[in-house]
């Protein structure tokens, strides 16, 4: 019942003559839970794509990693299967190393700068390199949020972070960042975060605020340090083989509505972040503004940690950002 193109002839429309186009069902997978900003964005995308295509494009959404972990669904996509999957640039780094710099700590001041980078020629080059690996970016500028640090004990300087076990996602960029900061980077699945905090297997976590609230980290960790160590954008990718199998206008609609949905998602994210910050305060979380400079100084070594990057990559990015102004 879930074919790529399932001819829907049941619509015995009264308007007679007009032949309805064959429906195109596309599977969309992501790791976030229903209700989170990413899920709201995906639902918006589904709605916009259906509208723009007169109901021809049907996006089937699979939240909560239902189709498999990020690495597995990316593999499915690369093989040309019918699926669009949300993937972080830290993950795409395994395929094209330079992509990882978009998630490097303190690369930009804010999310807007990152979104700007996705409009540059440099990014277009990145897209071409990914395509050589059978990966097509359908949307490259989804705002995931600004990552902050949440700990059981107060942390306002890198020195106070020394030796603390901080849960990080299981990827090189996050691990190297927190090792550079002096913490013991402890990669565990996000789903285990709450119990790990509770049992004292870890001393803290880091993520955008809505995600931290989603796993109820604030129930145990009562100190939020606004480190903003990563401004985080993600991409929605599909296999090149699959994209080429779709009609050009359908791909066009997917990209356009994907952009609109990302803008909508950005608004949702910002509203929710503000709301969550208030709720954290109400639940007794102490919010600490921290001085960024010492953190930034500590992580400069991360930029030396990836020998596969094109030489001068960091400088190139900085030049691009200067051109923005």
């Amino acid at each position: 019942s879930s074919g790529t193109t399932s001819g829907n002839s049941s619509s015995s429309s009264s308007s007679g003559g007009d032949t309805e186009k064959e429906k195109i069902e596309i599977n969309v997978a992501y790791g976030n839970q229903p209700g989170e900003p990413i899920d709201q964005q995906a639902n918006k995308w589904k709605e916009l794509a259906a509208e723009a295509s007169d109901g021809q494009i049907v996006l089937n959404l699979y939240p909560s990693s239902q189709l498999g972990a990020e690495k597995d669904v990316v593999e499915q996509a690369k093989m040309g299967n019918n699926v669009i999957v949300m993937a972080g640039y830290d993950f795409l780094m395994d395929y094209v190393p330079d992509a990882g710099i978009l998630t490097a700590p303190y690369l930009t001041e804010n999310l807007d700068d990152l979104v700007y980078l996705t409009t540059t020629d440099w990014f277009a080059g990145l897209t071409d390199k990914l395509r050589e690996q059978d990966i097509d970016i359908v949307n490259g500028n989804t705002a995931y949020g600004v990552r902050h640090l949440m700990t059981n004990e107060k942390v306002t300087t890198p020195e106070e972070l020394a030796g603390l076990k901080i849960r990080v996602p299981n990827n090189q960029m996050s691990i190297k960042t927190f090792e550079a900061l002096g913490a013991t980077a402890t990669p565990t699945p996000l789903g285990d975060l709450y119990t790990s905090l509770q049992q004292g297997l870890i001393d803290g976590a880091e993520n955008p605020l809505p995600v931290l609230q989603g796993v109820k980290a604030q129930e145990i960790s009562k100190h939020l340090s606004l480190t903003g160590h990563q401004k985080f954008i993600t991409s929605w990718i599909a296999g090149t083989g699959f994209i080429e199998s779709l009609p050009a206008d359908v791909v066009e609609i997917l990209k356009e509505t994907g952009n609109d949905a990302a803008e909508y998602g950005r608004t949702v994210l910002e509203e929710q972040t503000d709301k969550v910050l208030e709720e954290f305060k109400n639940e007794g979380v102490e919010v600490h503004e921290v001085e960024i400079a010492p953190f930034k100084a500590k992580v400069s070594s991360v930029y030396e940690a990836f020998p596969d990057w094109t030489p001068g990559l960091y400088e190139e990015i900085q030049k691009l950002l200067e051109n923005k102004q």
């Binding site: 879930s2 790529t4 599977n27 498999g68 597995d72 499915q76 040309g80 299967n81 019918n82």
Partner: peptide, 21 residues
């Protein structure tokens, strides 16, 4: 029965399904 997904995903789901601590 489906033309959506290639069969080697079956193996991927088997391996991915038990790849866990």
């Amino acid at each position: 029965f489906i033309d959506n997904f290639s069969s080697s995903i079956l193996i991927q789901r088997m391996v991915g399904g038990i790849e866990s601590v």
